[in-house]
Simulated scan of single mutants.
Amino acid sequence: MATMKVLVLNGPNLGRLGVREPDVYGHQDLHQLAEQCARWASELGLDVEVRQSDDEAEVIHWIHEAVDHHHPVILNPAAFTHYSYGLADAAAQLHTAKLPLIEVHISNPASREAFRRHSVISPVATSTITGLGFFGYKLALEAVSELQQ
């Protein structure tokens, strides 16, 4: 049986992990996140591909790719969370395709500035995990593994 591929997609400024507000986002960088996700995925028998873009259109295209190739998605939409209806429309296609979409946030948006408290992604996500740092990605991978059995 082929290993299930999971796309871990990260939005704007997450390429600056370790540099951008380390008190909020931690001291580890995107490369370390990718390494941890690969290790956790391997333990679950999953294949993971971690991507990051500051370009909204690119993230939307990646979600289209996930739908077309039947890949579950773990998405940290970052700032796109609060206003990207295009991303929300793309993400809704995962639900239609019966694929998990786990929304992940390193910090807890509900405990931050008021504008961060609204997500246009959460209504189309299978689940949302917030405020647990990189550990949230591990939980998301475990959720995908469970949901795809």
Rank of each mutant, 00 (worst) to 15 (best):
A2I: 13
V6F: 01
V6K: 02
V8L: 10
N10K: 04
N10Y: 06
P12E: 05
N13W: 01
L14P: 00
G15A: 07
G15R: 04
R16C: 11
R16D: 14
L17A: 06
G18S: 08
V19M: 11
V19A: 13
R20Q: 09
E21A: 12
D23E: 15
D23M: 08
V24I: 15
Y25G: 02
G26T: 01
H27L: 10
H27S: 13
D29T: 13
D29C: 12
D29W: 00
L30E: 05
L30I: 12
Q32I: 02
Q32V: 07
L33S: 03
A34D: 10
A34I: 04
E35L: 13
E35D: 14
C37N: 04
C37S: 01
C37L: 00
A38L: 01
R39Q: 12
A41T: 01
A41V: 00
E43F: 02
L44Y: 03
L46A: 00
L46R: 00
V48N: 00
V50Q: 04
V50D: 02
Q52K: 04
S53P: 00
S53G: 01
S53W: 03
D54K: 01
D55C: 06
D55F: 02
E56T: 02
E56G: 03
E58S: 12
E58W: 14
E58L: 14
V59L: 14
V59T: 09
I60L: 11
I60N: 14
I63Y: 08
I63F: 12
I63S: 07
E65T: 12
V67N: 11
D68K: 02
H69S: 13
H71I: 00
I74F: 07
I74Q: 03
L75P: 04
N76H: 06
P77Q: 05
P77D: 05
A79C: 08
F80Q: 06
H82Y: 10
Y83G: 11
S84M: 10
G86V: 04
G86F: 03
L87S: 05
L87G: 08
L87D: 05
A88C: 11
A92V: 11
Q93A: 15
T96W: 05
A97D: 04
K98Y: 15
L101M: 13
E103N: 09
E103V: 10
H105P: 00
I106R: 03
S107N: 15
N108E: 07
N108T: 07
N108Q: 04
A110F: 12
A110L: 15
A110G: 11
E113D: 12
E113Y: 09
E113V: 06
A114D: 12
F115W: 14
R116L: 08
R116A: 01
R116Q: 05
R117M: 01
R117N: 09
H118Q: 11
S119G: 06
V120A: 09
I121N: 06
I121L: 12
I121Q: 02
S122Q: 14
P123S: 06
V124F: 10
A125S: 14
A125C: 09
A125D: 05
T128S: 14
T130Y: 13
G131M: 11
G131Y: 06
L132T: 11
G133W: 04
G133S: 08
F134S: 06
F134Y: 13
G136P: 00
G136R: 04
Y137N: 03
E142A: 03
A143M: 15
V144P: 03
S145C: 13
E146N: 14
Q148C: 15
